[in-house]
Design a protein around this nucleic acid. Structure first.
Length: 257
DNA sequence: CGCGCTCCCTGGCCGC
DNA sequence: TGCGGCCAGGGAGCGC
């Protein structure tokens, strides 16, 4: 999309998770995408009129590219964007937990969904000292703390489970007790899991695919996620599942303390 | 203020 | 084949 003009935008419903902005399609149409980037789990497309088109995929959202100018939209293809290059980018989201917004580039950091977000886990500002300080005094399980985007950006349920396993930390341990030595261990485990997952094209559960349509392959390397009852790769004890703040946690009670 | 639960939504899968 | 219950990658909002 970078360098291309958004020639025709079709909006097939008024809302995703929230209502789309007023005249959304009209405001995108005719704009050129200057830059495509990311902050936390938000996809950001900088436009040539000083605005940023912001997208969150939620749980089930995806963008895919049709090589045709006018593809036949499916039931959950909510937004279709034809570029002047002759391709069509389709936003599909069957659960509609995703969102889109338009924000002036200068105000992006103040956007209500971005302003309190923590540092990027692969960036220089995320280190043991920072994580330790952020966990200090928190009386929530470390699992929940790592899912909190205010502490660190971009970690989801899968990668939190995996990072805790690889650092040998129990998901039930209170965040405050991870501050210090354990936090120093957790940071490289988080970086490692994310880096490896990205290298494998992400994790394909059910129907997730890369933009190219290719599947991700990291799911074959899950140590714990989705492996309830299966043996731990290290100690052979069965992997356990529990529910924390409404989400499944998978872990080894022997290797993670 | 910080925490955990519920809910938003659709659909796949499992057991009966 | 149908139906109810459970589960799913996220996270805002509310009550305690």
């Amino acid at each position: 999309m970078v360098g291309q003009r958004l020639a025709k935008v079709t909006q097939r419903r008024a809302d995703l998770r929230w209502p789309l902005p007023e005249n959304f399609a009209g405001r995108l149409e005719g704009r050129k995408v200057v830059r495509l980037y990311r902050r936390a789990k938000f996809i950001l497309a900088e436009l040539d009129d000083g605005w940023v088109w912001m997208t969150h995929l939620g749980m089930s959202g995806r963008m895919y590219i049709h090589q045709e100018t006018e593809p036949n939209p499916g039931k959950h293809d909510h937004i279709l964007i034809r570029t002047d290059g002759g391709h069509t980018v389709v936003y599909q989201d069957h659960r509609r937990f995703g969102m889109m917004d338009l924000v002036p580039a200068d105000d992006l950091d103040d956007h209500r969904l971005l302003r309190d977000i923590g540092p990027e886990p692969l960036g220089n500002n995320f280190d043991g000292v920072y994580l330790s300080a952020s966990l200090q005094g928190r009386r929530t399980p470390i699992k929940s703390a790592l899912l909190d985007q205010k502490i660190v950006a971009g970690l989801g349920n899968i990668y939190v489970c995996e990072a805790l396993y690889h650092s040998g930390i129990s998901p039930r341990r209170l965040a405050a007790s991870v501050a210090g030595r354990r936090a120093e261990k957790l940071v490289p485990a988080i970086r490692d899991v994310l880096t490896k997952a990205i290298a494998k094209g992400g994790s394909t559960l059910r129907d997730y695919v890369q933009a190219s349509g290719e599947l991700g392959y990291f799911q074959h390397e899950f140590a714990v996620y989705g492996r309830e009852g299966e043996p731990c790769h290290h100690c052979q004890e069965p992997i356990l599942r529990l529910v924390q703040s409404g989400r499944s946690t998978f872990f080894c009670s022997k290797c993670q303390r």
